[in-house]
Design a binder for these strands. Structure first.
Lengths: 222, 222
DNA sequence: GTCTATAAATAGATAGAC
DNA sequence: GTCTATCTATTTATAGAC
């Protein structure tokens, strides 16, 4: 692997493990057993590394949040979304831990973020509309926009919420699955009589994962 | 006012206006036209200033979140809560902008925060139960705990969500009122037929405030 | 491309005079 | 209690040799 790619890869790992604010460019260099000068040959500064990681993140999001096909099984639409959320939170958790700070200090990154944010908002909106069309949920049309924002906020700051409201700040897959269950609870009161049972089954599935019981399908891929 | 109190007061104002991470002890001192040495005579370090502010914040929370009296008008219970949330978000917005970072670097403060967090969770729990008892909402008993956590997360990270998802990061009263409306939307699907109209009226009230229309009761007190 | 050595920039904090 | 002057530590970033 090229040095440039190794720097990006190591940065993701170190940021996720120790928190972005606790990892300096020197830490990254020494972790890779290269010199700081070498690192600065490949990247002008730390923010350029983060912007590079963010591009990877944005690509990941675009791919994993597949466009909703109306023909799909409506229940599958929902689990696809939740699995994509899980994957993003897990693999890029350092971003979610520190989002306001990271964005406030780098206007260029903030602008990248706003772009992705808007695209994701559209996807969530589509998801909600699809569930409505498939008669899985029933919701006032006026509330869909606000509801989509609530979902987005709940997902985006779940990591932050866990880190602040618990003693133990280690990120685990179980912790993330608990967050997905909160998202399911947001949908719950809108679920139609017809789909109450399928949604209950999805909830049971993620509850098992949240309690550390292994799933028949194992850990999701990247 | 004593110098020590002036330092705390100025710090709150500067932190709220510019963000905690952009305000150094030297900034605080020069804002008050005192020397850094003088500031350090009164506080051992910046974290001690923040802990001092946090104590003020904790007191504010304890007072403004009055214990729920079952005898009260159930609608009043809800507006009391929302007004208390507004006041906290407005007067201590710097804390909400930066919570995970501030708590992660100071274990003593984190422990103070966990204490207040748990107390607030209890209050929210009581609020939900009171609304159930008064027949304002109907909710599965199993969901109350998770629902209370969702409310808490939504409130705590509303400022962060706004700052990351908008171009303009200025905090306004209107922005905060929009957050309260999201909390009302969380309650909405659980509201009983009987209380649909009163809740609609509360929503209209906060919608007016969120749109910058002045309310008959004016800005809430500290 | 990579290294060593070091400069530059902050921010946090202290010593000692008044 | 307050000031001036300064020190230390940290982190980012660059120059120049190999």
């Amino acid at each position: 692997m090229k040095t440039k790619d190794r720097i990006v890869q190591a940065s993701i790992e170190l940021f996720n493990a120790k928190g972005e604010r606790n990892v300096t460019t020197n830490h990254i260099a020494s972790h890779l057993s290269i010199s700081p000068g070498n690192l600065y040959y490949h990247f002008r500064n730390k923010e350029e590394i983060i912007r590079n990681i963010f591009t990877k993140y944005a690509d990941h999001m675009q791919v994993s949040f597949e466009p909703v096909k109306p023909s799909q099984d409506p229940v599958k639409i929902l689990t696809n979304y939740l699995d994509a959320v899980f994957s993003a939170l897990y693999h890029f958790n350092f971003l979610y831990d520190n989002l306001p700070v990271i964005m406030a200090r780098d206007p260029e990154l903030k602008s990248q973020y706003l772009d992705i944010h808007n695209k994701m908002m559209d996807k969530i909106h589509q998801l909600v509309v699809s569930l409505e069309v498939a008669n899985v949920i029933k919701m006032d049309a006026d509330d869909i926009e606000d509801f989509a924002n609530i979902i987005k906020q709940q997902v985006t700051f779940w990591i932050s919420y866990c880190k602040t409201s618990r003693e133990d700040t280690q990120i685990t897959t179980e912790m993330i699955y608990h967050g997905l269950l909160k998202v399911l609870l947001l949908f719950k009161p809108y679920v139609t009589q017809e789909y109450r049972e399928p949604v209950r089954e999805i909830t049971a599935h993620y509850t098992a994962l949240a309690n550390g019981e292994s799933s028949e399908q194992g850990q999701p891929d990247v």
